[in-house]
Design a protein around this nucleic acid. Structure first.
Lengths: 188, 188
DNA sequence: CGCAGGATTGATATTACTCAACCGTGGTGG
DNA sequence: CCACCACGGTTGAGTAATATCAATCCTGCG
């Protein structure tokens, strides 16, 4: 696939902001990225976590409508939309990527719509382990309680209390500062 | 754009079900359709309402992952994915449609994540008026309270109470069975 | 007329939010 | 080097919003 260039960003770097002009489509090669919007009232809504292989937005023209921030050091390749569309294969690939993202957002909707606080957080932890996990259910969580709350639609206090409860009953163990280990049953 | 055929469905018809084999991509020409999934526990999650111009799914192969039911009589045109991808213009059009759907789902996420019951229902009513509206804020609402609850992440009782409150304070007027009229300020 | 399905309304329970105090850690400057 | 500060995290008490449970009301239809 024709790719214009590969960029590397340090942890916490802003890859792009809402309002930036859309250009090439960025695809994450390594690392993890958080995607979010800022609402009129100033609050943040975390839309998604992206892992290797995920496109970070699909805007081919106009302005990008959300922010992307590196959770870890990461590499991003950019592809010209016009080139991706030129070939039937790459166009089909792009559609498939968008379909997956759409399915992801729909799971997010389902989570927010009906689940309790601890169910939402469990969904989040499993997603985080998928995007950020090293192995065997061990993963780093370079997100603030507020960011987790903004993903799950809860308050940071509820997030904190739920994590505390899990540590008490050994569902989740804190190995180091931000490194957690899921209990065996969940890691599967 | 090459289109294979146009089908007409009566109100309440199931256009397709989750698990159906994906084939051509269905685009709604007229009418309104509700898209939903059924969760493992049997509960329904309404994902979206679709109006004229919207594609009802984007699965090019494998199985469709959600249900589509006609809210009104409607016409659907089907397009072969392979044909859409063949031309750069139609491929770009398809991508644009998917982008809009993605933006829609993200608004839905924001709504579920942070808004109160009445704010969610107001969002829903405005969307419904957009998909189903006739003119001047008058629209038909061929959805049960349960379906509205399954879209907004509320219970049917909360939906009922909120609508009742709006009728009391003239935010919304019930003209006939399922026909409502928004107050002037909102219709704008 | 009676029934069935959806809608409404009321009383109560529960969950998560709010407000507020306090803790821990990493960084900075005296 | 140590004190202090800033920022994120934790914990507690009380509250508010919405869910739950349950009774009753329509409305269309056989």
């Amino acid at each position: 696939m024709a790719q214009s260039l590969i960029k590397t960003y340090p942890k916490k770097a802003t890859l792009f902001a809402a309002g930036d002009a859309a250009g090439a489509l960025p695809k994450l090669l390594s690392g993890a990225v958080i995607l979010y919007t800022i609402l009129p009232d100033g609050r943040r809504q975390v839309l998604d976590l992206a892992g290797p292989g995920d496109f970070l937005h699909f805007e081919t023209e106009g302005e990008i409508d959300h922010f992307a921030e590196a959770l870890t050091e990461c590499q991003v390749a950019s592809f010209q939309a016009s080139e991706l569309l030129a070939s039937k294969d790459t166009a089909a690939f792009l559609i498939e990527q968008m379909r997956e993202r759409l399915a992801m957002e729909r799971r997010h909707i389902t989570m927010l719509s009906r689940k309790s606080a601890s169910e939402r957080l469990m969904d989040f932890v499993l997603l985080a382990a998928d995007c950020l996990g090293e192995d065997e259910g061990r993963f780093d969580l370079p997100l603030t309680r507020q960011q987790i709350a903004d993903f799950t639609g809860l308050t940071l206090e509820t997030v904190s209390r739920t994590f505390a409860k899990w540590q008490r009953d050994n569902t989740l163990t804190r190995l180091a500062g931000q490194t957690y280990q899921m209990s065996g049953a969940l890691a599967a």
